[in-house]
Amino acid sequence: VTTYKLVINGKTLKGETTTKAVDAETAEKAFKQYANDNGVDAVWTYDDATKTFTVTEMV
């Protein structure tokens, strides 16, 4: 189990959160659900070296 981080650069929601998951795909599903629940529709990137997902909402 690995800890993954999500950085949110949204128009109305900004911040960071983490989740523990067995792999990046599982973490991504959890983070996308979190973003969807909070109304963030954005572009996703992932950095495997830092285990960090970044979501940037387009203006």
Score class of each variant (00 low, 15 high):
Glu57Asn: 06
Asp37Gln: 13
Ala27Asp: 00
Thr54Asp: 01
Asp23Tyr: 03
Met58Thr: 12
Asp23Thr: 05
Glu28Cys: 14
Phe53Asn: 00
Val55Cys: 11
Tyr34Asp: 01
Phe53Ile: 03
Thr52Ser: 03
Tyr46Lys: 00
Thr50Ile: 04
Glu25Arg: 11
Val59Pro: 13
Tyr34Trp: 15
Thr19Ala: 07
Lys11Met: 11
Lys32Ser: 03
Ala24Ile: 10
Lys20Trp: 10
Val7Lys: 05
Glu28Thr: 03
Ala49Arg: 09
Ala49Trp: 06
Val22Asn: 07
Tyr34Glu: 03
Phe53Thr: 00
Lys11Gly: 13
Lys32Val: 05
Phe31Gln: 00
Ala42Thr: 08
Lys5Pro: 03
Thr45Ser: 12
Lys14His: 10
Glu16Ser: 11
Ala27Pro: 01
Gly10Met: 15
Glu28Arg: 11
Gly15Val: 15
Thr17Asn: 04
Tyr46Asp: 00
Val59His: 10
Ala24Gln: 11
Leu13Gly: 10
Gly39His: 07
Gly15Trp: 15
Ala35Cys: 15
Glu57Tyr: 13
Val59Tyr: 12
Lys5Met: 06
Asp48Lys: 06
Asn36Pro: 07
Thr56Met: 06
Ala21Pro: 01
Gln33Asn: 06
Tyr34Leu: 08
Val1Asn: 09
Ala30Asp: 05
Asp47Pro: 00
Ala21His: 02
Ala42Gly: 15
Thr12Leu: 11
Gly39Phe: 15
Val7Glu: 03
Val1Ala: 08
Lys32Asp: 01
Ala49Val: 11
Thr54Met: 06
Thr52Leu: 02
Lys11Ala: 11
Thr3Asn: 05
Asn9Phe: 13
Gly15Ser: 14
Ala30Phe: 15
Lys5Arg: 11
Thr18Pro: 01
Asn36Val: 13
Asn9Glu: 07
Trp44Arg: 00
Val22Trp: 08
Thr19Met: 14
Glu25Asp: 08
Tyr46Leu: 00
Tyr46Pro: 00
Asp41Met: 09
Lys29His: 07
Gly39Asp: 07
Ala27Leu: 02
Asp41Leu: 10
Thr50Gln: 04
Asn38Val: 15
Thr50Leu: 05
Val22Glu: 08
Glu28Asn: 04
Lys51Arg: 08
Val40Ser: 05
Thr3Phe: 05
Asp47His: 04
Glu25Val: 10
Ala24Phe: 14
Ala21Asp: 01
Ile8Val: 07
Val40Asn: 05
Glu16Pro: 06
Lys32Phe: 05
Asp37Lys: 11
Glu28Asp: 03
Ala42Gln: 08
Thr2Ile: 13
